[in-house]
Amino acid sequence: MEHAMKRKPFPWHLVVFLAPAVLVYTVFMIYPMVASLTFSLFQDAGNGRQVFVGLGNYVRLLTDPLWRDPFWNAFRNNLIFFAVHMTVQNPVALLLAALLVTRVRGAWIYRTVIFTPAILSAVLIGFAWKLILSPTWGIWLPLLDRLGLGDNEVAVALLGNPSSALLTLSLISVWQNVGIPMMLFLAALIRVPRELVEAAQVDGATGWRVFWNVQFPLILPTVGIVAILTFIGNFNAFDLIYATQGALAGPNFATDILGTFFFRTFFGFQLRPGDPHMGATVAGVMLLIILTGVLLYLYGWQRRVGEVQY
């Protein structure tokens, strides 16, 4: 007893509090990630054995025409997908948030309605839009006729044409997710002190000027958060493309992004069997892309903008 009093007892409560979370997280998140990265350094040698090939799989992915072409195609499409979100989704979200923060009547109704698609599965959203845009149903064919596009092949089957499918799916994704950045912008705008806005208004600044000169600079940290969340979400996207266009991301791989490319590589498609080693390699490259984005955000953006105080 005397001994125990003198020495600090081992902090068992720390273990009890932390072990369950750390264990589940380590076994089902960190370990698989590490295992997957390790796995990408090996290749099947036949008869169930594996040989270490170093970065061989990565070299193959980036140089072998069989892998290189589909990989860059998916990467380029993913960049376009991201660019549409950055240039359409986030500005629209900012506009909606800027309008909502002026305390228009019924702001909470608008807010609730506009956020609704974001709580639905991309599978359902994708399919609903697929039906609406389908030439079979033809809901918007009368509208096209009026616009003089009734005979335009691309406009009639937006999801069926390689030239329009990716852009259409990007916009569907924007339509679904715009509520998320809108809420983040709104929360940031609400935190801007009212006195600052009112002072500017007293000085005779218009709503437009007040927004760009007073409110926007103060929510720059949120702009960065929205950008990095968009980036991570987009380079990890899969559900919408898979649900509407299938694993082949048609037409003719025009809507293939890294998520669908990863899925096909891992599980195979048509006559090509899946290759877990190359699948792990694609995942490794995706991880690298996302980490690059995160580091750019942390060091390039947050360091400079993060100190804004108000």
């Binding site: 750390v22 089902f28 990630m33 295992a35 997957s36 990863f262 891992f266 877990p276 991880l287």
Partner: peptide
């Protein structure tokens, strides 16, 4: 260590996860 998982999507460990 625990915050890593906020930024890194768990999907990227799928190959390891399925084997596990």
């Amino acid at each position: 260590y625990l915050a890593l998982g906020i930024m890194v999507p768990i999907r990227l460990g799928t190959v390891g996860l399925l084997r596990l």
